[in-house]
Every structure is written in structure tokens, then in C-alpha cells.
């Protein structure tokens, strides 16, 4: 029983020495409690120190270690070797993003989109004074957006989205779910600003409801639902806009 191993094939890309990625095979000691992330750390420590990958918290909250495991977007820290053993595992950088190096991707576009949707509470103009105390919120009001606030910005949903793959102008699942999170917050008054983003062709209308984003999300967020509900909101906004153009 001792010394069981598992084969891991990693799509490597070293920009200073090659023009396109190529696979490299590693063999690491197998144990059922090992995660993909730990296997990568084993490779870096014992087999090849040049391998690059992102990680931080090891507990599915930082959102750094997203990668493709056998073609499916996963968090390395939350995916166990036992679910693949004894088969070979194929690792590749998160799909639909440019590869910076090995398993590291360029996430600039995703980060810009998160920023663009104004991911913060925009209070009403007649802001109440600090001395008036906090904005009260009932559990029902919290429930309206809570699910969408669980996003850890790992980017798995972008890797799962064929529409983002076909056209990166699409605002995409996580950013739109986060947008919904703020628009659905009772303390927020920024819906009107955000609806301008939603109403665009590359806003919610870039989505064809494939629905894979919600399947791969490691935090149980449902971006597909957020987007469909925003389509309904955008349609209402369209009707209102016909009678009251601003």
C-alpha cells in the first residue's frame, strides 16, 4: 500500500524561453487527504522549483488558486487528489484569461470589471449624519443580497463562461453578480448608475444563460440567476426609458 503515487500533467509556459505552453509530467506521492494545491507545493519544493502558481489562504477564501483541473475550473485548495486517483490529473491555467506564466493568469480585465460596477454602497444624496447611527437592516433585507456577497473574486466563473471566452467585452458573471449584490442592498442608492452598465450589449445582454458559472462557483453564488434577474430589471428600465428618456 505504501508509496502510492499519482501523475500530474501541468501545462507550463515560460515566456522568457518559449512561445507557447507545453505540458510537463510530474509524479507525486499520493495520499487521499492531499489537495491539488498541496501537490503543487510538493512539486515546487521537491521536483521543480521553477513552477509558478498563485495561492495564499489554503482554505477557499482568498480566491487565488483557481486553475483548470481536467478542463474544469476549480480552486486548487478545495480539490482533492482522491477524486481523480488513480487517473492522471491535467492542470492548466484558468481558461479564458491570458497566461502570465505556468498556472498564473493575467486578471487585469476581470479586476477592471469588478471596479467598474462600483462595488460599494452609494448612499442617497441627503446622507445622514454619522451621529444619526448606522443604517438599520432587517434579516429579510439582508437575505435579498447575501448570497451574491459571498463572491471571493477567484475568476472560476469567467473561466466557465463561453460568452466571455468568445468576447471579453462581456462584463461577465462575477462582476454582474456583485453588481446585483449592491443594487439589491436596501442601504444603496446607486442602482441608476449601475443600470447603465447592465443595459449595454456587453452588460447582461452578452449572456445566453449557459449557466455553467453557477455550477463551478466554489462559494455557492448564483451569477446566472443574478444576470437573469438583472435582464428583467433592464427590460423594465428599457420600458421606463421609452417614456422618460433622461
Amino acid at each position: 500500500m505504501a508509496n502510492k503515487t499519482i501523475k500530474i500533467e501541468i501545462l507550463r509556459y515560460r515566456p522568457e524561453q518559449e512561445d507557447k505552453p507545453s505540458p510537463q509530467l510530474f509524479e507525486v506521492p499520493y495520499s487521499p487527504d492531499l489537495t491539488i494545491l498541496e501537490a503543487l507545493q510538493y512539486i515546487k519544493d521537491h521536483l521543480d522549483s521553477t513552477i509558478s502558481f498563485r495561492w495564499s489562504c489554503r482554505m477557499a477564501i482568498c480566491g487565488s488558486c483557481g486553475l483548470m483541473v481536467d478542463g474544469v475550473p476549480k480552486l486548487g485548495c478545495k480539490t482533492f487528489l482522491r477524486d481523480y486517483f488513480p487517473n492522471k490529473i491535467k492542470l492548466e491555467a484558468l481558461a479564458n484569461f491570458p497566461i502570465e506564466r505556468d498556472l498564473v493568469v493575467v486578471m487585469d480585465d476581470f479586476i477592471n470589471k469588478l471596479e467598474e460596477i462600483k462595488p460599494y454602497i452609494i448612499p442617497e444624496d441627503n446622507t445622514k449624519c454619522l451621529s444619526d447611527g448606522p443604517h438599520q437592516q432587517t434579516p429579510e433585507k439582508l437575505a435579498k443580497y447575501k448570497q451574491y456577497s459571498m463572491c471571493i473574486n477567484c475568476g472560476l466563473c469567467y473561466a466557465a463562461c463561453p460568452q466571455y471566452a468568445l468576447d471579453t467585452k462581456f462584463t461577465g458573471p462575477a462582476a454582474l453578480a456583485l453588481l446585483a449584490r449592491y443594487n439589491r442592498d436596501s442601504r444603496d442608492a446607486g442602482s441608476k448608475q449601475r443600470m447603465k452598465i447592465v443595459n449595454q450589449e456587453e452588460g447582461v445582454w452578452g449572456c445566453t444563460f449557459v449557466g455553467y458559472c453557477s455550477v463551478v462557483c466554489p462559494k455557492g453564488v448564483d451569477p446566472a440567476a443574478a444576470i437573469q434577474l438583472l435582464k428583467v430589471e433592464s427590460s423594465k428600465d428599457y420600458l421606463i426609458g421609452m417614456f422618460k428618456p433622461d
Binding site: 447603465k196 452598465i197 443595459n199 449595454q200 450589449e201 433592464s234 427590460s235 428599457y238 426609458g241
Partner: peptide
Amino acid sequence: KYIRSHEPV
């Protein structure tokens, strides 16, 4: 510039 889509129709 944000351009509204006619997709709702």
C-alpha cells in the same frame, strides 16, 4: 459612454 441595448425587445 454607455450605450443602451435594444435587446429587451
